[in-house]
Design a protein around this nucleic acid. Structure first.
Length: 485
RNA sequence: GGCGCUAUCGUCUAGGGGACUAGGACGGGGCCCUCUCAAGGCCCAAACACGGGUUCGAAUCCCGUUAGCGCUACCA
């Protein structure tokens, strides 16, 4: 593709009528990537002209979601509702220029005609009956206070543009109808507001979901009627659920906030979303945001709708969990641990090296932050809970278990050094002298130390818990074995 | 219904006329590693929607068919 000829300006323009959806997040991401890649700006516009459905809470959720993802916008947020006067001015310009006209047909009449056409199995298109009403009639009806809307007059010909993702798209103008641009209450309709704002904001690249493709010819005609230069259009494919239908609440988590609370890393979310409809080419998959910026090109944009696969998202998160610098992971995990009541900021600050090693150990076998929190208990809490399944499996024979744990405790007590190597040699020696497989000692010991049947390597666990706590736990286990049934 | 968009493994995708016995990844299955679980390594199953062209040669270009999706408001 050809590089933009001037510093690009893009915008993400959600309407604040719900939460920030993963589809919206992906649109925001591609806009952001394009802006960063070509050294431009990404602006944020809140399309709040539908006052009945717009809420401050939703606007807040959009900001929060964008911030969590690290998709920061340039300049002040633009609120569409604040631009009413300009919208009206632009409509007036078209009225004066003769590219728009007043229409006195009421919504009810139109509904009726639409229904009639449908029952006759005909497609309905506004028949322009109010266009070129005699000048005097218009004046008298306006003077009489009769309500009217303003319609844009579709010219002859056809409208074509070269879409950044679809190449050439053409609409015969005869298939377009003279759409309303200003309601009878004087407020603008979507297409007008968008064009007016995009012009005012000097937007050069309009990148949005491909559900807007059919709005595009109308908007292009509006640009022309206003005598303004066209931006470049790019229509991104939709995201569908696993059933192939448009993604919605019944597909489970669809708000980006849901994923934040599920313990996902923003970098993983972004990486996953980027791959839904874009590929850098070749086999490249796991990338940081910076890498995506340098690799980004609209050429890699997909035309086909993509299905949201939570399994791959989870895998992606696991990859990022292991790849990001520990120092970056720490500030994300710590609040989760604190919130779970496992520790405090002060506790962590007092033994930071130990904590970082623990994180490093736990993140390998976690796919989400929540996984880490779930595994972390035994290293922070004073008392542990024994998982019934773990005890049933590894502490099956009470006498044998007690015997092994007692012997293990003795062996560890006399272990000269509390290190990975020292511990390993002690326990392997113990297994050898008793003539049993090492695993016969490790598993019961794992349950004694963590209460779980799954953990990092047993020597790592011993080292992380330290001599004092480890021995205390083993002794406690010896007491518990008989009573746990 | 009309208009538009789209079409490679179940899913995300690579592929820009010969490099295709169609590559990678997720998920699934198996093996290795191994103190458990992960991670990692190796292997297996799995796709060019269909029909016509164009061409010496089509996953790739063109046209149809089919299917899916989107739009079709005084919503955005």
């Amino acid at each position: 593709m050809t590089e933009p000829t001037r510093r690009p300006r893009l915008r993400f323009a959600p309407s604040p009528t719900g939460y920030l959806h993963v589809g919206g997040a992906r649109t925001a991401l591609f806009n952001w990537l394009y802006a960063k890649r070509y050294n431009g700006d990404l602006l944020l516009r809140i399309e709040d002209t539908d006052k009945a459905r717009s809420t401050d809470e939703s606007t807040r959720a959009i900001f929060d979601g964008m911030e969590w993802l690290g998709l920061l916008w340039d300049e002040e947020v633009v609120y569409q509702g604040a631009n009413l006067e300009r919208h009206q001015r632009d409509v007036q310009t078209m009225l004066d220029g003769g590219t728009a006209y007043r229409c006195f047909c009421t919504a009810e009449e139109l509904d009726q005609r639409r229904k009639d056409a449908e029952s006759r199995k005909e497609s309905f298109k506004y028949d322009r009956r109010c266009d070129r009403l005699p000048e005097e009639e218009i004046e008298t009806r306006v003077a009489a206070g009769e309500p009217f809307v303003i319609r844009f007059r579709i010219p002859e010909g056809s409208t074509e543009w070269n879409d950044l993702v679809h190449e050439s798209i053409t609409f015969p103008n005869k298939d377009l109808e003279d759409f309303v641009i200003l309601r009878s209450n004087g407020t603008p309709i979507y297409n007008l507001a968008v064009v007016s704002d995009d012009i005012a904001m000097d937007i050069t690249v309009v990148m949005r979901g491909d559900d807007h493709i059919s709005n595009t010819p109308k908007q292009i005609l509006l640009y022309r009627a206003l005598g303004k230069e066209l931006p470049v259009f790019a229509h991104l494919p939709m995201i569908h659920g696993m059933d192939g239908k448009k993604l919605s609440k019944r597909h489970g988590a669809t708000a980006v906030g849901d994923y934040q609370h599920l313990g996902l890393l923003p970098g993983a979310m972004l990486n996953f979303l980027a791959l839904l409809g874009w590929s850098p080419g070749g086999d490249r998959e796991v990338m940081t945001l910076d890498e995506m910026v340098s690799l980004f090109s609209p050429d890699g944009l997909q035309r086909k709708a993509a299905i949201f696969d939570p399994k791959k998202l989870e895998w992606m998160n696991g990859q990022h969990l292991s790849l990001i610098p520990l120092a970056d992971l720490e500030p994300i995990v710590t609040p989760a641990l604190v919130a779970a009541g496992l520790t405090t900021e002060a506790d962590i600050a007092s033994r930071r090296d130990w904590y970082m090693s623990l994180l490093d150990l736990l993140r390998v076998r976690a796919r989400t932050i929540d996984d880490i929190v779930r595994q972390a208990g035994p290293y922070f809490l004073d008392t542990i809970e024994y998982d019934p399944e773990a005890t049933a499996k590894s502490w099956k024979d009470v006498e044998v278990t007690r015997d092994i744990l007692v012997a293990t405790a003795e062996s560890l007590e006399s272990s000269p050094e509390w290190t990975l190597e020292g511990l390993e040699s002690s326990l392997r020696t113990l297994a050898e002298t008793r003539g049993i497989a090492a695993g016969k000692i490790f598993q019961p010991l794992r349950v004694a130390l963590t209460g779980l049947s799954v953990s990092p390597g047993i020597f790592e666990v011993l080292v992380m818990q330290g001599r004092e706590l480890s021995l205390r736990r083993i002794r406690a286990a010896v007491e518990t074995v008989g009573n746990s049934e």
